[in-house]
Write a protein that binds this DNA or RNA. Structure first.
Lengths: 207, 207
DNA sequence: CCAAAGTTGGAATTGACATTCCAACGATGC
DNA sequence: GCATCGTTGGAATGTCAATTCCAACTTTGG
């Protein structure tokens, strides 16, 4: 039975630490060079471990990729909290999007989105990665949806607004805008894309 | 001097045909498996050519990738013409987006966008590919921008509307929506994303 | 303390891939 | 018709990746 299939593998303290170090190194490398562009020897060197350790903890490269997907999802959610929990005003939405835009600029518009890049690469090539990435987007979209729903429940948004569709549209604008910005090396596209969708949400405001 | 650096390489009739066959086979493979996931032997088998032919016409793998980027750009523009040339009404915008949505469904939401997938994979790994992809998005966005500008010039769109930003937002919605749909295996996200942006354009209509 | 189980290092295996080379074949223009 | 240059086949080369194996070492629970 492969490690990644076991329900609960017993890990000692140093084991947990090593595993974590491998995932973090792999996540960084795969963010910069893609999953396919990251070799096991690369991860070994970056994490300072031997091959047997990687195979011991993840079974094979696919197992490592899956662990990286989960790790990046947790990291993304954690990074954007508490903003994500309070997306129930136009100002909060703009602040959240602006933060990502500023981070884009700070990185020179390189790298794109940690989740989106993996998604584009893996969606059609690894069924379980696709499932994990779908879950990642769902976890990411949920707070947006919930924030918009609260605005609507409070009567701030018109009852005719489809808040679920708006949440999806906003997430899509983030992804598409980041891709265009990454290619153009300018955050303008990202900012225009998200701004348009937020403007559209704003047009549903009551009063 | 490598072939891809030469200004004009003389090609005989069979040479042109072989070159074209290689690019088409490579484009198809790279669409399905990514540029990194497509090997020269793969292309050889799919196009029915020998290795020396590929290196003769493209110099190296990067040269082939560049040729594929250009080929896919031309193909995308050609495929969406004449729709792209007449995006100067809300109905035309919806029809154009619906067409892409229907194609998405027809493919079972697999594959995503031929340009976007390459962009995500190559933007940070190949400077000349990034330039080519930026040009691809510009060529794609230009007709959208121009259609919106015509609507505004005719007085159908409010003078306060930023048509360039709207065009970018629409392209971003297409890209982001396709990515979400590819991961979720449902065209809903794509349709919600583009529909939101078109609704937003519609809100700028005069009268 | 001591067995069982988790952890680690390092070498060996196997296969694929990008690229090069060279010799042969074919079209083309003068 | 012949020399030139484009075209093609196929083998050879060197590198590197994924994975396996096994022996040695360490932690842990009783």
């Amino acid at each position: 039975m492969k490690p990644e299939q076991q329900q609960k593998r017993r890990l000692t303290a140093p084991g947990r630490k090593t595993r974590e170090r491998i995932v973090e190194a792999a996540a960084e490398l795969m963010f910069r060079h893609g999953a396919g562009g990251t070799s096991i020897p690369d991860v070994q060197a970056a994490a300072g471990v031997s091959a047997s350790q990687i195979y011991h903890y993840f079974g094979d490269k696919q197992g490592l990729v899956l662990a990286v997907v989960d790790h990046q999802t947790d990291a993304k959610i954690a990074q954007q909290r508490p903003l994500l929990d309070n997306l129930d005003s136009i100002e909060a939405l703009r602040e959240w999007c602006d933060g990502a835009g500023d981070r884009l600029d700070a990185a020179g518009c390189e790298g794109g989105c940690e989740i989106g890049s993996l998604a584009s690469e893996l969606a059609d090539r690894d069924q379980s990665a696709r499932t994990g990435l779908a879950a990642a987007f769902d976890r990411w979209e949920a707070p947006i949806r919930s924030g918009l729903a609260r605005m609507q429940a409070r009567g701030e948004l018109s009852p005719s607004a489809d808040t679920d569709a708006l949440a999806t549209a906003l997430l899509a604008a983030v992804q598409g805008g980041m891709l265009l910005s990454q290619v153009r090396r300018s955050s303008t596209a990202y900012r225009q894309a998200v701004s348009s969708v937020i403007d559209h949400v704003e047009s549903h405001l009551v009063r």
